[in-house]
Design a protein around this nucleic acid. Structure first.
Lengths: 207, 207, 207, 207
DNA sequence: TATGAATGAGTCTTCATTCAT
DNA sequence: AATGAATGAAGACTCATTCAT
């Protein structure tokens, strides 16, 4: 009985979240209204405020998930490809959600971007940061830069590319360009030792 | 006597523009109100609409100028340093305007970012694109990528860095990081021929 | 408990409608303001927009009802008197609502006047049109003009009179004049056969 | 020198008046703005207020002129035809100005309609009122109604018809209908004596 | 858990009018 | 006679949020 009620609540919560995402995809953030969201979700305004303390709280839950990559990729193709794959997955996510949504998500005001605020796992970085440090200690990645700085560099590359993609209204091949830039960058920081294990002319398909 | 009136009008217009910029620096775009702007400018709401057709029109006039760099730099230190200096100037601009302003400026929705829309001279890229092409034809820059693609790459790096700086609420050294990334990237695309004329261990001070 | 809420809503809606009618009577349409209406209704502006999508939508609900005439009149005094009574009822309505209100209602822009748009029953015409056609087929009304044209003629007479009444700021006896004109007109279209059943020197009191 | 200045002033005045009429024809009264009028007239706002004390004053000058009919018509075809011709001329005026303009002109609020306010010659009535009284004294028009009442009746017929024409967005043959109603009415008030001079089956072309 | 009526401060925008030049 | 910059009150409408049921 109690469980049933709880489940119903969770359902409503999800309905609201979904409606919000949908509307953001369709109309953008500017015109996102609590009322509209509720109408789309088939739920009353009151319910909204039962589950979320404010409109902003809802927004902060919008996510562009990056799930753990297949661990086997790491073993088979190496860290470089693993990192590339992680970010390409994120790019694919963006393409999937569309320019409208991404334009709103890719906003410095979106606190999901602040590395200090975001919860673990919500962004690729945390998934490979430790691996990078380990690779450095094994002499497979140069130690010119600390691991966290490399992470920031890669992130800047990805963010910059997505941003430009948005600005150009989607008329631009983000995927190829980002992949190329990531590879170019990564090849300068991985060592010969690494490339002996995983030769350079490999590639990875993510479709 | 016509001149006097015209001058007065231009003054008012400028007062409004300045007040808008100020408020944006202080409070951000979200809370930018026509009334607030007018109060700050010491001007009536009616005057606002005498000079601007809408609030949006005002926004579209906000500019982050990038003036031509000192031409002598190009000759003395070479194209690589010239490009770095151009972008660092932009970064300095951003720091100058503050996180609030830049966060709003750095928004995919801001059409000032769309390379297809923006007017010539409003962004560094257009200032060195042709120089890059010329350098390629002279064998000083690798031809692996066409000039325009290099421009996009550099832009992605800068945009990404500024974006992250905004997201982190300014708690991050954009300048150094961007400079480092730009140099790393540029060193992979300039040829030995270029570096014979302009050895690598030069640096440029822009303060 | 759902019912209670619904009833409350309907109440508010009515309060707004009433306040609007009142203010229109007192001050005319020109100075009809959403805020004023809400103040008078003792209701917030938000509530107004909860029930009406716009100010115009409210206006379109203002009605000058013409209820069905007592059916017995038709049988006792005949169609001619019935028609006269219907229109006099409308005139009385106008006098009741006052010059201000009527001036605004009597505006070609008020689509309530467009015979093609208006809903059945909202204007006297539809109440006797069919009766007129029937009377023609029974030889009690001349067939020189089709029924619908007669309806338009009568309507023109009434509209014209009310219009003049409005223009003269109410300083004019609409009622008598309209009645006289209607009778004059109707006596030229009804046949002898009709007047044998219902002799001419009858009259009807509607006070 | 002085004359030249005065003429220039009159020109400006006329330009404003014309621009106002034009705009009213095109866009209706609702959206009539002093600024728009001035722009159309190619004149400054200041000039407007030099010639008119207020926007309303301009409006009150808008006219739908009815010029004196050809006097010969009166002699050749008689008073009945003369009156019909006068009103048909007004109808033609309305058609000419279009539904937009007329809808705004035909507004009880337009004081041009108030018989007490309007200046002599601005409406057909004054052109034939005295003639009607004279005809009564000569036994050519029935004396059941005083002349002024007949005038009001005719006016009501015309106003009613134009009003309906406006409400129907011009989809209605005002001219024929008004003519028919006027003739029907007039034939009931002119005497046999008149019709001996001017037999009934005459007609008048006004194109 | 769910509803939806109610709030009211706040938004952008319009526009007749004034006035110094 | 002519200009047009300046005014500011007032308008319609929005929307996150509250709360009694």
């Amino acid at each position: 009985m109690n469980d049933a009620k709880e489940k119903r609540g969770l359902d409503t919560r999800r309905k609201i979240l979904d409606a919000g995402t949908q509307l953001m995809k369709e109309q953008g953030f500017e015109s996102l209204t609590v009322r509209k969201i509720c109408e789309r979700a088939g739920v009353s305004v009151g319910s909204f405020y039962h589950f979320f303390n404010s409109k902003d709280e809802l927004f902060s839950e919008f996510q562009m998930h990056t799930d753990q990559q297949d661990q086997s990729l790491l073993e088979k193709k190496g860290l470089l490809e693993y990192i590339v794959a992680l970010y390409l997955q994120h790019i694919d996510n963006c393409c999937d959600m569309g320019v409208e949504f991404t334009s709103n998500y890719y906003n410095p005001r979106n606190k999901a971007f602040n590395i200090h605020t975001r919860r673990p796992g919500s962004y690729p970085a945390s998934l490979y940061g430790p691996l990078l440090a380990k690779a450095q200690s094994q002499g497979e990645v140069k130690t010119l830069l600390p691991a966290y700085a490399i992470v920031e560099d890669l992130r800047a590359i990805v963010v910059g590319n997505v941003f430009i993609w948005c600005s150009s209204d989607g008329m631009w091949d983000v995927r190829s360009n980002t992949e190329r830039m990531l590879r170019t960058y990564l090849q300068t920081i991985f060592t010969e030792k690494y490339f002996q294990r995983f030769p350079k002319n490999q590639s990875v398909g993510t479709d």
